[in-house]
Amino acid sequence: MSENNPNILALDFDGVICDGLIEYFETAWRTYCQVWSPTNLTPPEDLAARFYHLRPVIEVGWEMPVLLRALLVGIPEEKIWQDWVAIAQQILVGEGLKATDMGAKLDSIRDEWIASNLAEWLSLHRFYPGVVERLQQIIASPVQLYIITTKEGRFVRQLLQEQNIAMSEGSIFGKEYRRPKSQLLIELIEASAESPAIWFVEDRLKTLQGVKNQPELNEVRLYLADWGYNTQAQHESIRYDKRIQLLSLSQFAEDFSVWP
């Protein structure tokens, strides 16, 4: 491969390949209802819009119903932006809950939904414009494609299959791998016969900063997907960053030679 092309392209899923905001909210609300048993099972009219707006603070699925709890008990959005990790932990501890239990409940609700009405569940996901076609081009090329995500791998595979995207065995690293994305990237390097040119596209700036701080990953080219679950302030914060490049959806759909 030339320096204008990667040997390995690693992509996040949610916020890079697929927009699942509508499904996230619905699954989070169903989970919320099971955990907190509200008297009204219909969510407040503005709750979904507020949840969508705050989606960039969420890192792992169990946090989604906890975010709804934070909003419904009146924690200001500004405070959530500033200190979400501490707020989420305070809610768990204060209400005697565990993140693992919350995550298992959310996954179980999603599994039941898929089993009972797969078409409905699939219909609530939107692949970003041009992404499906670009993935198919990459799969047909010499570039090795991997997906590294905090979503359960089986859900990712289900959504890709619906778009006729066939990923090879072992190319999807989901939540079940229980390792940070930086560690999985290190393992990809270690598994390669030569020093591969790895490019990593992610919509969570904190994740990219974690990769940037790993000396073993100094040669990995890092991209923040500006169409994902991040903010304009985060885009501005990396304007002069020498490692993390801002990538637009139109650039993603183009040949690697035109990427920043």
Rank of each mutant, 00 (worst) to 15 (best):
V156N: 05
F173Y: 03
I109E: 03
W29F: 15
E169D: 15
A48R: 13
M1P: 03
L118T: 14
L118R: 11
M1D: 05
Q209M: 09
M167S: 05
L246V: 14
E190N: 07
I114H: 09
K151M: 02
T27E: 11
Q245P: 06
P196Q: 12
W121I: 11
V143T: 02
R126L: 08
Q89F: 03
N117V: 14
A70Q: 04
I139Y: 03
L249C: 06
P180F: 05
T31K: 15
A48Y: 09
S248W: 00
E78Y: 01
Y52G: 12
E169R: 13
I58W: 00
W227F: 06
T42G: 13
S192I: 07
S108T: 15
A99T: 09
Y52A: 12
D241F: 03
Q136L: 12
Q232C: 14
L97Q: 02
Q214K: 07
V66W: 03
L11G: 05
K105G: 12
S123P: 06
L47N: 09
V16M: 00
P65T: 01
S141E: 07
V57I: 09
T31W: 00
M64K: 03
V211K: 04
I75T: 05
D111R: 15
I87Y: 00
L122R: 10
W29G: 04
V73R: 14
A86S: 12
G153S: 11
W113Y: 10
Q161H: 01
Q209W: 05
R55Y: 15
P38V: 02
Y128L: 00
A104C: 10
I87C: 07
L222V: 04
T31G: 13
R55T: 12
T31R: 02
W81A: 05
P196E: 02
W259V: 01
L47G: 10
A233F: 14
Y240A: 15
Q163C: 05
V220R: 02
D46N: 11
L47D: 05
I109P: 02
E194L: 08
T207L: 05
E95N: 13
A99W: 00
Q183K: 13
N7L: 10
D226E: 13
G228A: 11
